[in-house]
Design a protein around this nucleic acid. Structure first.
Length: 294
DNA sequence: CCATGTCAAGGTCAC
DNA sequence: GTGACCTTGACATGG
């Protein structure tokens, strides 16, 4: 099991997702920002290797406005050497990589404009990973989308749109259960139609499920991953107390995490810790993992 | 210099 | 139909 944290490392003085307002867009500003972001990413990768955190989610903000029409720069070409070099580092140390474009990516929207922008955003994510030279085990995770008061049609739209995507993108795309609309079971049903791997998210499963246990859900999701996809990925979090359902914990709850490990000890997966204090909790999780007695 | 309003992008729910 | 919420950081402006 590789353990990781998403996008931001609070122990470092830099961020790999610094951006700027669209009103102040210029090519110079873009190039300067991307250069800084990639420098920071290099530091994050080194930190991770040094601390044995071998799973990392890359933030979507590495190339600001990459999928927007305002961006006319061929960023992948301009930064091909830097990206290739980061990719080599990732492969040398066998780091696992994921990305998670945010809520604006909705493949099954009834609005064609939304779909078009979503695909452009996915293409950006895919191109970043491609340019790094990473194989199909580096994944891009999205949610199934909206329901629009007609679930059957909404799922059908997802399936139809998926099949039209570029094969390069399809080999990286995976779907994750969300906390309100599409459960693990719903995602697996979609997966049956189009063979897309399913990422199980523990907190979302607590919020929305079909009566199956977490282990059952995890096992079923794991079976949707083929050899070319790599070891299944799993998102873990726990509920922050006194906050609305689905709110991510501020820091790792040791007891909850030990229980999670006990319940899933027979399964192999890479674990993304969606905890607000990021690498701090990831390190804590690693210590627990290394000392646990079943 | 600091406080705070605002930022590319969507969907759902309550009212 | 409109606004709050989701969730979050940090840019950027105005005082």
């Amino acid at each position: 099991m590789k353990i990781g944290y998403p996008c931001i490392n609070r122990s470092l003085a830099c961020t790999a997702g610094s951006t700027f307002r669209m009103a102040s867009y210029s090519e110079e500003r873009l190039l300067e920002t991307v250069r800084e972001n990639l420098n920071c990413l290099e530091k994050m990768l080194a930190f991770n290797v040094n601390h044995n955190l071998l799973f990392l989610r890359l933030g979507s903000g590495i190339v600001p406005f990459a999928s927007h029409s305002i961006c006319k720069t061929d960023w992948a070409f301009r930064f091909r050497r830097e990206l290739r070099s980061l990719g080599s580092f990732i492969k040398r140390y066998e780091l696992r990589i994921s990305m998670h474009p945010d809520q604006f990516v909705v493949l099954n929207s009834p609005d064609d404009g939304v779909v078009e922008r979503s695909i452009a955003e996915l293409d950006y994510h895919c191109r970043l990973l491609d340019t790094m030279g990473l194989d199909s085990t580096a994944k891009i995770q999205i949610h199934a989308g909206g329901v629009y008061s007609d679930r059957y049609s909404a799922v059908q739209r997802f399936v139809d749109r998926y099949q039209l995507l570029d094969s390069n993108l399809k080999k990286r795309l995976v779907i994750e259960n969300d906390e309100r609309l599409y459960s693990v079971k719903d995602c697996i049903e979609i997966s049956r139609k189009i063979r897309i791997p399913v990422i199980a998210d523990s907190l979302h499963h607590e919020c929305l499920n079909n009566g199956e246990s977490w282990k059952e859900a995890l096992e079923a999701a794991g079976k949707t991953w083929k050899k070319k996809d790599g070891i299944p990925m799993v998102d873990y979090s726990s509920q922050e107390k006194n906050r609305k359902k689905g709110n991510h914990a501020t820091s790792l709850n040791s007891r909850h995490f030990r229980k999670f490990l006990r319940e899933t000890k027979d399964l192999d997966f890479d674990l993304m810790l969606e905890i607000k204090d990021k690498e701090k909790s990831a390190l804590k999780a690693l210590r627990i993992l290394n000392t646990i007695k079943y």
